[in-house]
Structures are given as C-alpha cells and as structure tokens.
Design a protein around this nucleic acid. Structure first.
Lengths: 365, 365
DNA sequence: TTGAAAGCGCTAACAG
DNA sequence: CTGTTAGCGCTTTCAA
C-alpha cells in the first residue's frame, strides 16, 4: 500500500535492460548519445515495466518545470474561459502544463496565487492583474527570472509583455456610434471599483492631464465614453454614469434599473460582459422595447448576444486569439531571455446588430 | 543571467541564520521541532534573503506534489468552466494547485493528458471521460495509487468515485413534461457520436435489455426521451431524432433547421448546452414564434437562458456544486486511502419558463 | 558511445 | 530541541 514503492524508476528499467542508469536515463529522457541497440532494449524494458517518467525529478535538476501559471479574475467567466482555452491549446503544443488560479480581482488573493505558482517553479506566468497599482509580486517574479505576460491589462511600470486592446479607443468608438445615431442620453454601466479615476469625472478640461496608461479597463472605458461626448459637444449628465463597485451581474441589474427609472436614457452601454448580463436583465424586467424605446450596446462578444431578441450590438475583442498570443509571447520569452518588452494592442471589432436604433427625431431636440 | 544561481535555498537561509540546514528546513517547512528563538532568527533571515520555497524539491521527497489534474472536454464551455470554478475553489482551500487540460472528447487526447498529468506526479485526477468504453489509462492511474473522481459521467467498470446526475431520469422528466403539455411531435437534438446506443432506437421491447450504465450522457438522455414516450403510449417518429455527431453548435443549428423544415415538430428538446445554442439560433433563423408555434426545452442551466425572449425552460444540473463535491471527494481520497467507491447522483431541477406552452388543441388530434 | 559518481533542494531518520 | 547524514529520481559532468 506504500504509495511509491511500486513506482518504476530509471534504475529499475536500467537493471532490467542490463545497462547503466545513465544510459537508461538518456534513452528515456531523449538526451545524449545512445546506440540504437541499447535504446531498443531500454524502451522494451520500460514498456514491460510500465515506466512513467517523473517530471518532478527532472524539473528539480533542470530547473524547468514545463509548466506555466495563469492568474485570472474568475475562471467561470466565459470571457476568461475563452482566453484560457487559447492559452491551454498553445501550452499543449509545447507540452507544457497549465496551472490555473482565480484572483476574483482581489490583490491579496492574486499575491498568494503568484507566490504558490512561483513555489511550484512555474517557468512563466500569464496574469490579468487585479490592480494596476499593485504589482510588486509580479516584479519579484520577473526579478527571479520568471517571465510574465499581462493579459487584458497593462502595467506601465512593469517590465512585462502585455496583450490587450485599446480600451479608451474601443469605448470611444462605441460611444461615437451611439452619438451618431442621435443618442444624447447614454447610460453607462461600469464596474469601476477603484477610485483614482473619479477625478476625471465630468470636467473636460482635465482630460488632457489624464494618463490613460494608469487607468484600469473600466476607467479607460469610461474615459472613452467621456471623450466621445466631449468631441461631439454633448454634456454628460452625472446620473447616467452608474458604477457597481464590483464585477457582479446583480449589482449591474440594480444600477440599470435605477438609471432607467431615474435618468430616462435613450441608450444603455454596458462595458463588460458581467455588466451586460445584469443590464440586459434589467431592461427586460422593465419591459422596455429595444431598440424602439431604448438602444443597447455591450462590450465583449459572447455567444448569447446573438441569441437574444433583438440581437445585441457589441464591441468585440479577439479574446481567444489574445489568449493564444499571450501564450506564444510567454513561450518565446521562456526560450529566449533578454527580449525587449512589447505590448500588443489588438483592434476591436464593432458588431452592429439590431439592439441599436437611430433616433432622428431627438437629434434636433 | 543563470536562471537559478540567484535562487535562495534553505541552505542559504541556514547559513545566514547560523543554524543547520535541518533546523532551517523545519522552520521554513513547518514540520518537526524548532524553538521559538531559532524559528524567529530563521524566519528573519528568510525574509531578508527573499526565500521562496521550492515545492518541486519538497514534492520529490514527500512524493506529494500538492497538485491535482483536471481533464475536461473543453475549458471554454461555460458549463465546464463553472464546474472548474468549484474545483479550483476547493483546491485553493487545500492549498493545492490545479492543472487543466482539454480532451475535446477525443480519447487519444485524453490519454495523453492523463499521461502528462501522471508524469507531473499529480496527487489526484478529476476526469470527464470522453468515452465510457476506453478507460485503461484511468485504470492505470488508480493502479498507481492516484485516485480518480469522475465528473458528469461514470464508468461502471472503474474503481473511481463519480459525481453526476441521473441523465435517463432527467431527460425522462423533461420529456414527460413536454408530453403533458400536449406535445406529440418532440424533436430531440443530440450529439450522440458513439454508436452503441443506436440499437435502442425505436423498439420499446428492447428497453428492458438496455444497461443504462453503459450509455454515455447523450445516450442516456435519448433513452429517457424514448422511455417517456413509451410510457405515454406515444410513438416516436425517427425523423424527430437528430444527432450532430459532435459537440458543435453549427451542426446543431443545421440539424434543427432540417427537423423544423422536414418533421413539423411542436417542440424542440436540445439535450446539452452546445446543442441548445445551435438549436435556438435555428429557431430564430426560421422566425418561428416561441412558444406559440413551437415549444423549446433545454438541458443545463446557463445565464443567458433567462435573457432570451421568451426565457428558455431547462433541466438544471447543480454544476458548480458538482465541481465542489468532486474536488472534496478527491481530497478525501487523497488523504485516506481504502475508502469504498461511491457514486454521487444529484437531482436536477426543472426550470419552467415561458418557452414551453400547452397545446390543448392537438392533444385530442 | 557508455558508465560511475556527483548532486538539484529538500525532508526524514537518527543521534546527540 | 538541534545537527548530521542519507537519499527522493533524475540529469550531468567526466572518464573510460
């Protein structure tokens, strides 16, 4: 019953094949020189004994665990799950394992996750950092020689590659589109828990002073919304900006109900997939006709957006591809050290569907 | 630039603290006896040097990697992602890592995944097996002393715990409900790639000979559908049974279009979440009024089912909970060996919404 | 080409 | 309680 007594080792295989441990190791591990004759004998012996390589022992020697770690906000978020799929496909191709963790946007959780992953000697890390201002733990990883690739967010102070979209631009485009359709009262439903972006609020003269790189996704998307309004000469009413404080569909539902009841928006812009879920539920709860009475715009493409009635317009990130690319970047960096840091910004695609309508009448109003 | 030259080890900490490696190891690893005085000195030294424990080395000695492996069909499937979330929450609580892989319902892929996970010395495995008749690789894992918990499916021949639902029962209940609403032409959209269940087809006298345990989920769900019809004395028309051959929404879309066009169903029953997506798209493509002209029933609860118009009725599995439970079973078994094998069958919940209507008129027809 | 021997960083016996 | 000494299973010099 001893767990490891019956485990076959290189030594066992060597003995059975009548060769040295070193020779068996070389044949089994696929390194160094072994004659064809020996190799066959060894392989046969391994087969007969049912030898299973011990990657842990190998990792100990080589210092490489053939494993990468992924720290995301929440695995059960389909948006992240799709990225993860991309990552794991690439990892499989490289014969690497993927260790996953969820931070739930919590910095201590993220720090602990990174610590555990480093202890497990991962060869690299893909992280969607919870807080753009807290990255000492990532700095440490890099200092230890563990490359880090950032997904979906970038940390301007960190020497790590990043794969993301231009959130300001994407949100600005979406808002421009709504404005071009004649909307002047566009409600925005956003998480935006952090506070260092409140100051940008509603004062256009401050826009120039804002360093977009220091904003998180939600902050950047709010800025895009404000910029689009500003350039169109449309003032934004404060009550149209609704923040939930966390990625929680229920909170989005509540905030959307509130804005529908209090601020008479002609359009709702939900800036991430969790918000979208709550916001759409709220719109249906109130029984408002979309797009006749209200237009609806989402962020992030998800399968179900085309299964609603009407189908929902959205700003789509190439998320699967971003996961793939992040993993590829990481593997390159694991292989070659001393690569320059690079940020890869992807273009978003506007998926225009029936949830948005023009309101010519009100344009003049 | 040497990757590991700068890595701090127990020895370094010991030297700095002026104690033996063993003492440092005990303090750092939290095992054995260390006086408070020494422990403090050691911890301070570790702190100052920035010591990071090497779990790989620890794993080598103890034979425990503090890691479990998960083999699912497809991580990007929200259904599986939700289960994974449950698993990973429990793993975190136990301070275990989670290595994930996707099999895409392919047996060789699954075998390779299991092999790699075993090589990485995982302490346990949670698997949704691709094929109920191919489980030698899982047998081997168990023989090696690595416990396996099956999720969503069970293998009657395997000494592994399983966490699942009674698919025959669930599907039978759903079909009964549709029948009770007066439906007599219920199309069923199913994956069902495997062939060992075709024989059950439409011959009621054979039902008794069927070993439900040997069916996979899709087979069991089809059986439930057939049984419900049989007990209601309703004959099933062959053209109402549509199989896609793989978990592919596009194929489900095509098959559903076909059945709508050719078989004049009054209800559509999509038996998993991928099928549901394609089937619902097809229904909308044809512009058929639901539930007035057609009733629609799904399998598996997903957020978006309540965001459509009308909201979609479904048979809900407690999937998050099943993930949690699978992980808990696994950890128990990792801790205590020689537990009896157990299968945990969960009850499904019928979520009745507006996508199903009674068709009184046709009941008499 | 092959083998003997020396560790990787840590834990587990066993003395002291 | 603390230190010494052996390894875990494998890779990697270094000779032969």
């Amino acid at each position: 019953m001893n767990k490891k007594n019956n485990r076959i080792t290189v030594k066992d295989v060597a003995r059975k094949a009548g060769v040295s441990t070193a020779a068996a190791g070389r044949a089994l591990g696929g390194y160094g020189y072994v004659s064809e004759e020996l190799r066959e004998k060894i392989m046969r012996a391994a087969e007969e004994l049912g030898y299973v390589a011990n990657q842990v022992a190998r990792a100990m020697i080589t210092g490489k665990s053939q494993t990468i770690g992924v720290v995301g906000a929440d695995i059960s978020n389909p948006f992240f799950a799709e990225a993860l799929r991309g990552i794991s496909d690439i990892a499989r191709r490289h014969e690497f394992g993927v260790l996953i963790t969820s931070s739930d946007e919590d910095v201590p959780r993220e720090q602990e996750a990174v610590r555990i992953l480093l202890e497990k000697q991962v060869d690299g890390l893909i992280v969607s950092p919870a807080d753009i201002n807290n990255c000492r733990h990532l700095d440490q990883a890099i200092a230890q020689g563990i490359p880090v690739v950032l997904l979906d967010r970038k940390l301007p102070t960190l020497a790590a590659d990043a794969v993301l979209i231009d959130n300001v631009h994407a949100s600005r485009e979406a808002t421009r589109y709504l404005l071009s359709c004649g909307h002047r009262r566009i409600a925005i439903i956003t998480e935006l828990s952090s506070d260092y972006d409140t100051q940008l609020a509603l004062e256009p003269e401050k826009f120039a002073t804002i360093n977009a790189d220091r904003l998180n996704s939600s902050g950047a998307r709010l800025l895009g919304y404000l910029l689009a309004h500003h350039e169109a000469g449309v003032a934004v009413e404060k009550t149209l900006i609704r923040r939930t404080g966390k990625y929680c569909a229920q909170r989005a539902f509540e905030e959307t109900l509130a804005v529908l009841d209090d601020a008479a928006p002609t359009a709702v812009f939900a800036v991430d997939n969790v918000m979208t879920q709550g916001a759409w539920r709220a719109v249906r709860e109130r029984g408002i006709a979309v797009p006749q009475k209200l237009s609806f715009f989402a962020f992030d493409e998800l399968d179900w957006l085309t299964l609603t009635t009407p189908r929902i317009s959205t700003v789509a990130q190439p998320i699967h591809h971003m996961g793939v690319h992040a993993a590829e970047l990481l593997f390159r960096r694991i292989r070659e050290t001393d690569l320059p840091v690079s940020w890869q910004t992807y273009q978003v695609e506007m998926k225009l569907r029936e949830s948005v309508a023009t309101i010519a009448a009100k344009v003049k109003g």
